[in-house]
């Protein structure tokens, strides 16, 4: 069996260029060094990973909620319409085509005055009198924040008698979106600072505890990056592991939000959970490695 294994190993080795073999061995050694460093850090690993998981959970939960709030806002924005009342004698189709050319306009629907009058009569049980209503256009805009500019443009048209839209609601949606985006950026910044500080301090402790060993490596001619790389990887490992654990509470947040979307009959944003997970892992790992790198720059003289 062993002979068979050796034969396979030899066959595989034959096909790998010598330089690559050398690089692969170095990579293997570096991985082992990283693994040993983490093992030697002992119980502190648990503390760091748990702290990282807590920070990433807060970030993930916030980011995921922000995506849902955005989706709610978008959905509300979609039902916002501008009602345009035309002067008598104006051609609704001409005005419709004119408005359709405006930027941000997603659609225009003509409500003929006869239809409006019939509906009103039916709803209010009115007697048969001359139709006093004008032809109406319902204009749909792509985003709530674009309603106002479109409204002002339509107002300039000579065929328009009067207009209306839920101005307050549109403004509130716009403000809500703005606040959520600002807080998300703020949370990302806080998270970055916390992650980098925690990793920085941990790696500083690791460097202190391995001071003699690093000194020996340095004096024996071990290359600078060979000394630094396992420490950077250790930082990245903490970020990655923290993100891995944060998946559990994040799943609860996801379920809660999905229930909320179902309750309000607003579709949940597509791929939101996947986006949050990818960003959480990328940020955890990058900030972990970054914190370690900054610490090495400051405290490791090689």
């Amino acid at each position: 069996m062993n002979d068979q294994k050796l034969k396979i190993k030899k066959k595989v080795k034959k096909h790998i260029p010598k330089d690559w073999l050398c690089e692969l061995r170095i990579l293997y050694r570096l991985s082992m060094e990283t693994f040993n460093d983490i093992r030697r850090t002992g119980i502190v690993n648990l503390v760091i990973i748990t702290t990282m998981a807590a920070i990433l959970t807060i970030f993930g939960a916030f980011f995921r909620s922000a995506l849902s709030i955005s989706s709610f806002a978008h959905e509300l924005g979609n039902v916002l319409e501008i009602s345009v009342y035309l002067k008598s004698g104006s051609d609704p189709n001409t005005v419709k085509n004119r408005i359709k050319e405006f930027e941000y306009v997603e659609g225009v629907k003509i409500i003929p005055k006869d239809v409006s009058w019939e509906n009103l009569k039916r709803e209010m049980n009115l007697p048969d009198v001359t139709n006093p209503l004008p032809d109406t256009l319902h204009v749909k805009v792509d985003k709530p924040e674009n309603i106002e500019p479109v409204f002002n443009k339509i107002k300039e048209l000579s065929s328009v008698e009067d207009m209306s839209y839920a101005q307050e609601l549109a403004k509130r949606i716009q403000t809500l979106n703005h606040v959520v985006n600002t807080i998300t950026v703020f949370v990302v910044i806080i998270m970055a600072i916390l992650t980098i500080t925690i990793i920085n301090n941990t790696i500083q402790l690791v460097i202190q505890s391995r001071k003699d060993e690093i000194e020996i490596m340095r004096l024996m001619g071990v290359s600078n990056w060979y000394i630094r790389f396992p420490l950077i990887m250790q930082g990245a490992f903490y970020g990655f592991s923290g993100a891995l654990i944060a998946l559990i509470p994040l799943n609860f947040v996801q379920n809660g939000l999905v229930n909320m979307h179902q309750f309000f009959m607003v579709p949940a944003p597509v791929y939101a959970q996947n986006i949050v997970i990818i960003i959480m892992f990328a940020m955890g790992t990058l900030f972990g490695a970054g914190g370690s790198f900054l610490c090495i720059k400051k405290h490791l003289q090689v």
Partner: peptide, 29 residues
């Protein structure tokens, strides 16, 4: 090669590993 008065050996590693340490970092088989 550098030899020091205080030996500067990795205390948690064997004699073999101490001697092999640097050449391992060079990707030698």
């Amino acid at each position: 090669g550098i030899v020091f008065q205080d030996y500067k050996l990795l205390q948690n590693q064997s004699v073999y590993d101490n001697v092999a340490y640097v050449i391992r970092t060079l990707g030698i088989s």
